[in-house]
Design a protein around this nucleic acid. Structure first.
Lengths: 245, 245
DNA sequence: CGTATGGTTGAGTCCGTTCAAACTGAGTGG
DNA sequence: CCACTCAGTTTGAACGGACTCAACCATACG
């Protein structure tokens, strides 16, 4: 299934290559799913595949927004910083997800790998030309942006109005649902990011994240299985906790 | 300037009419600004102008998303509720701004007027057909969505990582900047919403909003001028407070 | 084994909340 | 004109959930 006459795969750190796409296993998860074979060929021409180690910055806030990216494997986080170093993670991105949309010429946030990750990097200038030619692709992008806006509003509810326990329960459930949405196992769920990242995503400190997980464990709704794996023992109860019941 | 051979203007509460557009004073602020005269004519055909009193619900979360709207005057708020009534306002919309983008068939949030407001209501089905015909309009919409995403991320930073004072200072400055962006006076700034709305937007209680305003007043960076008018006595100091200096 | 890193647990503090009361101003009616 | 109401706002006092600071524990690694 993953072999199509070639066995090449980009393994160089920080290197780029032009192979694959035909053997892309997550094509259905990306905007490439709406492209025909001929369109794919032209998209591939403005594409470079990059492989990055964990905890590596992809771009910084205020950098020139020269590229757009698809995550093809691994996990990426987006964040903004305040002057004194306080950090808010605005999203985690998994295989198939898209990043780089910018309103101005510059990125509005920093993007950094959480795990080792592979990304398709596109020239923004060249890809935008293709958007102009293919309205169906732009329409698809608009759909993605609309979904992200809805998700952002949910996150505002979480940050502004939920308690630590509700935040944590919501987070675990969301990670579980997203894993299932991309065809992976949602229970037990894998949390590839560390406590600091979870805290900065939920508007909590490391200690509160840790304590809240212990509370949920003591309530019997989850089990901590080590190295970022969590078993949802009572998913329905976890859902109730997430919504404040 | 506002007269173009007709003196009609829709003043019926809850009523709709098909006039104007030609005399629309805020056309430059809306997506209509990218339309030609012929395109405008077709957009007008799927448009109804509605005038609503203050504190009137435009649509509810989970309603069928049959319409899209442009705010032509007044102020609108968007919010989501938790099961027990906790509320998070995700945005305030002013003249020229657009609402109704939905990922599914249903709205993801409730929209309600803050002040008396006029809106252009479009049939979603018919307007989306025009999107398909006019890629430049869809492109413009994508730009709007991208800007809103950036704004949503800023709001996440505010909700997750800022103190009450930083939240309040950021809010006043944002309201001031947005007033200027639509050609109104940014200082003194008008806050048409009440304390409860400000609190539910910033993730604070009414009391904290009130106390924080008093603190800012005592610091001498703002003056409360009554009925929602605030004078920014030291805008730069207010900016410093907003960013945590 | 020693060290480093990430995670957990504990004790005390503080910011924002909660609950309560007083104040303000606009509208209403005697 | 003033008394009254009522919603919105401000202020006060006490509380509490999450934070801060600190110590301890677990796992990985040289």
């Amino acid at each position: 299934m993953e072999q199509l006459g070639t066995h090449r795969h980009g393994d160089r750190i920080l290197g780029g290559d032009r192979q694959s796409c035909g053997e892309c296993e997550i094509r259905d998860l990306t905007f490439c799913s709406v492209l025909t074979a001929e369109e794919m060929a032209r998209v591939r021409a403005c594409r470079t595949e990059v492989k990055l180690p964990a905890h590596h910055t992809i771009f910084h806030e205020a950098d020139e927004a020269d590229h757009l990216f698809n995550v093809t494997s691994g996990v990426v986080k987006l964040y903004k910083l305040l002057a004194d170093g306080r950090r808010q993670i605005t999203g985690f991105l998994f295989a198939g997800e898209f990043l780089g949309l910018a309103a101005n010429r510059t990125y509005a946030y920093t993007a950094e790998t959480v795990t080792e990750a592979k990304l398709c990097r596109f020239s923004r200038r060249r890809l935008e030309k293709l958007f102009d030619e293919w309205p169906h692709l732009e329409k698809h992008l608009l759909g993605i942006a609309a979904s992200e806006l809805i998700a952002a509003q949910d996150q505002m509810v979480l940050l502004g109005r939920k308690t630590a326990q509700e935040k944590m329960a919501s987070f675990i459930l969301m990670m579980s649902e997203r894993a299932e949405a991309r065809g992976q196992d949602g229970n037990p769920v894998t949390l590839p990011m560390n406590r600091a990242d979870i805290g900065d995503y939920l508007g909590l400190t490391i200690e509160t994240v840790s304590r809240t997980l212990t509370q949920l464990k003591n309530k019997g709704v989850i089990s901590l299985m080590g190295s970022g794996h969590i078993l949802l023992s009572k998913p329905d109860d976890l859902g109730d906790l997430a919504e404040g019941f």
